[in-house]
Amino acid sequence: MTSPAATGSPVDGVLATVTIVLSLVLAGWALVATLRHRPPDRVQFVGLAVLEVGLLALTVVALVALGGGERPGEPGAFFGYVATLVCLPPLAAVLARMEPTRWGSAIVCAICLVTPVVVVRLQQTWEFVGTGGTGG
């Protein structure tokens, strides 16, 4: 981990950890709702909203770092993941509202399981350059 900048990755910190934990907790809650044949409840929608706020904050932190001259290891993949990430909770919320059955909860569960994966991939695409990029 020979990061070019001494400050380290902007997407790897308390904020990222919080979003991952929150997302997993929400996925667990939604899974219980799915297994109990319950439609998405208020907790799920509020949780998605809080998760989205966290992800937007993460995006802002990343953009600020970019503004400060730091570059992700794989810019293409990094921006792809950022764009995907901020779309996830709204996608889950819209679809869950359209589907007021257990499958709505299943959608929330699935999206909340994907979100931590995308956050981790985001961190990997930022740090990739340190492990030996191929260059042009």
Binding site: G80, L88, L91, L95, A106, I107, A110, I111, V114, V118
Partner: peptide
Amino acid sequence: PGRLLIAVYLLFAIA
């Protein structure tokens, strides 16, 4: 369940 499938498809579409 179809809506769940659509959700995953949309996910991959966005990504």
